[in-house]
């Protein structure tokens, strides 16, 4: 390949092909491929799913079915900071709903949405297993425990 063409190749696409190649002789490769592709792209854009479908010969309808089935997969880009609000039982009985309500009000978005400025994405998760610290949220995998609604604004301010 000439150097001019090399510049035109998206490095992410090269990575995607490497991921697919890594699993080509594995049984049932779809979910690991999607997980790793999402790590590369931050989400799963349509052209990526189409490419995976072509390369693995798995029908696109089935891939779309799998992507929409599992909570982990995203079809839209995520904001700069990802807030996971734990809605496990322990968090629920210790006031998780109020934490969520406050977050929704503060950010003016609902579950699954991203703020207009792309600063935050809000997602409800079933349980992050930090039940001892309930109610908890995690922002970019950093856990904030023993929360109270009035603490929210201060925590959000730390994330740009």
């Amino acid at each position: 390949m000439c150097t001019a063409c090399e510049d035109l190749v998206d490095p992410k696409e090269i990575k995607l092909d490497e991921i697919i190649a890594k699993y080509q002789n594995e049984k049932g490769p779809l979910i690991p491929i999607l997980q790793e592709a999402q790590e590369v792209y931050g989400y799963l854009p349509a052209h990526v799913l189409k490419h995976i479908s072509k390369a693995t010969r798995i029908p696109l309808s089935r891939i779309y079915g799998v992507v929409t089935f599992y909570a982990q997969f995203r079809l839209t880009p995520v904001g700069r900071n990802l807030i996971n609000v734990c809605m496990g039982t322990a968090c629920h009985v210790r006031g998780g709903a109020k934490v969520l309500e406050t977050l929704e009000k503060e950010l003016k978005i609902k579950d699954g949405a991203t703020t207009e400025d792309g600063r935050f994405t809000l997602e409800i998760v079933a349980c992050i297993g930090a039940c001892g610290l309930a109610p908890v949220i995690s922002i970019n995998n950093e856990v904030h425990g023993r929360l109270l609604p009035e603490k929210i604004a201060g925590i959000l301010a730390k994330y740009e």
Partner: peptide
């Protein structure tokens, strides 16, 4: 696949 919300034994 410990999915019960409020359980973390297996983890």
């Amino acid at each position: 696949d410990e999915g019960d919300p409020g359980a973390f034994m297996d983890r």
